[in-house]
Design a protein around this nucleic acid. Structure first.
Length: 818
RNA sequence: GCCGAAGUGGCGGAAUUGGCAGACGCAGCAGACUCAAAAUCUGCCGUAGGCAACUACGUGCCGGUUCGAGUCCGGCCUUCGGCACCA
């Protein structure tokens, strides 16, 4: 028997799998389809352990489904536009495209060294013209459907990245990529109208039965739907109205002031009549200069200034002061808030600080409030209205709808649904992205580039300088053009698209990657979609997964596809941790996949990473654990060779020991199948395989029935194939015909797992006192009768009274004594 | 503050429907093989007491339901994640 040499074995099989037709996928209506997908990577240059984990999980899923008779689509590609390529251009003078393609080449080689079962002919690279042509085409589709628009707004600007960011890409006031602080800037930018789909994006979360609950909850929070009342308050001094939005119309009689965001357009008019206009203007400047964190943290100091102007509460006719404050968010609702200090914590703090009036309008009849000594707002969702005119005495929830009805009947307000979700800012002042296909004509204004002129190609003659200027605007060949409508003088949009747009539809392109008439054919995308199993990191819970859901719904409404949700099942893998922290260069705890693969082989790396932790949980890297996995593969290598020595011996009837070993095999088949198919419990599937190999080891020095030896070797290799494809293929080729990866998944023989005896537990007062073997199928009453006849039971219950006997067939007998 | 997840040996983890807590692996200890070491194989391995059979305790804490709770219920504690002045 030669030694297990993973380097040699893996190289050999990777060459076999690299043949163009080995993993080629075609539509086939005779088999059920299965679309297995891992989130495609950014081509940073090297795989890290997070990638290895992601692809190992996906490969087990795909390979198992292939063997289980499904027509499996399992593609890979690269999210190839993005800033690091551009930064490399600035730092080292290399072209972003050259840098990117070199990285893709390197990473593809690393992926191939992992032995992954991909159809490489479907590879997608988002930076290639034949891909971004369709990204631009989709932008135009959104534009034509009124879902892409340009607007001047205060947007998030990252100095370090030299570009604007979408709300989803700002984390705790910082840039999601470089972690530097983001500030507001007024710029005219392109947006996608994701808010038009807010309701459906929220409602359809219910359809996603195969998604982790926490991801759905995160999206729900992000969309942030609320119901309430929007109503107008008169400003007599200006002969104007201010609209406010509230979710607590039941507290409307407690309004004591009105709070405006410093950006509110009415402030200018107020200043025209205000006695302290200068102070108000100064305050607004000050508030606007505060950083995002200062402005939006609930712990920040609330500040404000009285404008000297009043408005009228339409419910009771009271005049209330108009204040400008730093805690009202302009982008949400109407940018103006009715303030009720007694029933809102923020208003309480503000009113206390500035000595404003507090009027209580809700009391709790169950435990009446002592208003004179209250030090907080009363915000519980329970109570009855007081001091509220004709609504006094009404239960607060009834009062909410009654007050809304009243406002609607009087014509000064209406029911309103609001969302926290904002439109998606998609412009980026960067080079390495898909150019926005828009032309600005001196006469015609904003014009789309005609479809047959797509793609708008990225020019080569640009200067890569950090700053507010889009690199494309430095190109001499790109900028100037003629108007497609009138032929007159025009110039191009020089911003590119957020790369999240490229990744919002790549999984559709995989279904028809070489189509040069359309982004994809409708019948192909419908055949393969939705993705049956999507696998990736939790960090995309909102970003990529929300954007992709939005894209799917827009493309459905445009008639390009016929389903509502892109990803039927989602698996969010945990991080790879070492020494208690995420692997990172700065901590110096990075383990390179390349080194592990060189030392032990890809099979060992895959096995360890799948065995060490459940897929959803963080995984602690352990060098000793890797050695353990390598040891196991060596055990497999030896035991298969030993068993194969018995293949040609003469067959006898199975001994009792052999029957028991066969039972272990079939129980293992059942468990591994269920763990892989239903639970993604790869760690327990592998532990069951280890137990089987341990059981086989009891026969290492004994002759074994040749039929059983063959059955064990065969089924073990089939079950190992999705996890450790190279060693399984090699051992199979040595002792069996054909290719292990083209075998049907093995099934268990129900007759083989039947036991004739079961061990049941005897408990006395719930404590285990004895184990007995009984015939299988003994009924409840048989067991109850059996219990008192056991000598041990007799001994332990001597002198005590048996109160009750509980029997669970096949499990236990519990005797209750006093 | 609100929402969510988790807490089990020295470590990673198992226990799928309320029924033997600690499968499997790592580390450790002992033995076999060897001149020796490595590799391999075998056994032991929650804590305390005991030569042992065995006994008591034990799944973050307190209480409850149940013949029986890691699992269910109520109340806390800790850690991690998300949202966070959204009216």
């Amino acid at each position: 028997m030669e030694k297990y040499n993973p380097q040699e074995v893996e190289k050999k099989w990777q060459q076999v799998w690299n043949a163009p037709d080995y993993y080629r996928t075609v539509e086939d209506s005779s088999r059920p389809k299965y679309y297995a997908l891992e989130m495609f990577p950014y081509p940073s240059g090297n795989l890290h352990m997070g990638h290895v984990r992601n692809y190992s999980i996906g490969d087990v899923v795909a390979r198992y489904r292939m063997m289980a008779g499904y027509n499996v689509l399992h593609p890979m590609g690269f999210d190839a536009f993005g800033m690091p390529a551009e930064n490399a251009a600035i730092a080292h003078g290399v072209k972003p495209g050259d840098w990117t393609f070199a990285n893709i080449k390197n990473m593809t080689a690393q992926q191939k060294a992992m032995g992954l079962a991909y159809d490489w002919e479907r590879e997608v690279e988002t930076c290639r013209e034949d891909y971004y042509r369709w990204t631009q085409w989709l932008f135009e589709l959104f534009y034509k459907r009124g879902l892409a628009y340009k607007k001047e707004a205060a947007v998030n600007w990252c100095d370090k990245c030299g570009t604007v960011l979408a709300n989803e890409q700002v984390v705790d006031g910082k840039c999601w990529r470089c972690d530097s602080e983001v500030h507001k800037k007024n710029l005219a930018q392109w947006f996608f109208k994701i808010t038009a789909y807010a309701d459906e994006l929220l409602a359809d979360l219910d359809k996603l039965k195969g998604w982790p609950n926490r991801v759905k909850i995160m999206q729900e929070n992000w969309i942030g739907r609320s119901e309430g009342l929007e109503f107008a308050m008169d400003v007599p001094a200006l002969n104007e109205k201010i609209s406010v939005y509230t979710t607590r119309p039941d507290t409307a009689f407690g309004i004591t002031f009105l709070a405006l965001a410093p950006e509110h357009p009415l402030i200018e008019k107020i200043c025209a009549v205000s006695p302290n206009a200068d102070a108000v203007k100064n305050f607004c400047e000050h508030a606007k200069s505060q950083s995002d964190i200062e402005r939006t943290s609930s712990e920040s100091e609330k500040e404000g200034i009285f404008t000297g102007v009043y408005c009228v509460n339409p419910f009771n006719g009271r005049e209330v002061q108009i204040w400008v404050t730093n805690y009202v968010v302009f982008e949400y609702g109407t940018g103006a808030v009715m303030a009720v200090p007694t029933h809102d914590e923020r208003d309480w703090m503000f009113a206390t600080k500035y000595g404003l009036e507090k009027i209580w309008v809700i009391d709790n009849p169950k435990s009446p409030l002592d208003f004179d000594t209250m030090t907080n707002a009363y915000v519980d969702k329970e109570g009855v209205l007081i001091n509220s005119g004709k609504f006094t005495g009404m239960e607060m929830h009834q009062a909410m709808s009654a007050i809304i009805d009243f406002a609607e009947a009087q014509g000064f307000g209406k029911r309103k649904v609001n969302y926290r979700l904002r439109d998606w800012l998609i412009s980026r002042q960067r080079y390495w992205g898909a150019p926005i296909p828009v032309i600005y004509c001196d006469k015609c204004g904003e014009v789309l580039v005609p479809e047959d002129e797509l793609p708008v190609k990225l020019p080569d003659d640009v200067e890569f300088k950090q700053g507010a200027l889009s690199p494309l605007s430095t190109s001499k060949t790109f900028n100037e053009c003629t108007c497609p409508k009138c032929g007159g003088h025009a110039h191009r949009e020089t911003d590119t698209m957020d790369t999240f747009i490229c990744s919002s539809w790549y999984y559709m392109r995989y279904t028809d990657p070489h189509n040069d008439k359309m982004p994809f054919a409708r019948d192909k995308v419908n055949y393969w979609s939705p993705v049956d199993q999507y696998i990736g990191g939790i960090e995309h819970a909102i970003l990529h997964l929300l954007y992709s859901r939005f894209f799917t719904k827009v493309l459905r409404d445009a008639g390009l596809l016929d389903y509502d949700e892109p990803f039927a099942n989602l698996l969010t893998q945990g991080m790879v941790i070492k020494d208690g922290a995420k692997m990172s260069k700065s901590l110096g705890n990075v383990v390179s996949p390349e080194e592990i693969i060189n030392q032990y082989g890809a099979d060992t790396a895959r096995l360890f990473i799948l065995f060490a932790a459940p897929v959803e949980r963080d995984l602690d890297w352990s060098d000793e654990g890797v050695q353990g996995s390598f040891r196991f593969l060596n055990r497999v290598w030896r035991i298969i060779h030993i068993f194969a020595n018995n293949f040609d011996t003469s067959a006898q009837n199975l001994t009792a020991e052999e029957i028991s070993l066969r039972r272990t095999l079939h129980k293992t088949i059942k468990k591994v199948t269920e763990d892989v198919r239903d639970r993604f419990a790869f760690n327990t599937a592998i532990s069951a395989l280890m137990e089987l190999v341990n059981a086989m080891h009891a026969f290492q020095d004994k002759p074994i029935n040749p039929n059983l030896a063959r059955e064990l070797a065969r089924d073990l290799l089939i079950m190992l194939a999705p996890f450790v494809p190279h060693i399984a293929a090699e051992l199979w080729s040595k002792f069996f015909e054909g290719d292990v990866h083209k075998q049907s998944w093995t099934t268990f023989d129900p007759a083989a797992i039947v036991e004739d005896e079961v061990e049941i537990v005897i408990q006395i007062n719930g404590k285990v006192r004895e184990h007995v073997k009984v015939a299988v199928g003994l009924s409840k009453s048989d067991l109850e009768k059996l219990a008192p006849t056991l000598p041990r039971v007799d001994e332990l219950t001597a002198g005590k009274k048996i109160v009750k006997v509980i029997a669970v067939p096949g499990k236990l007998i519990n005797i209750v004594v006093k």
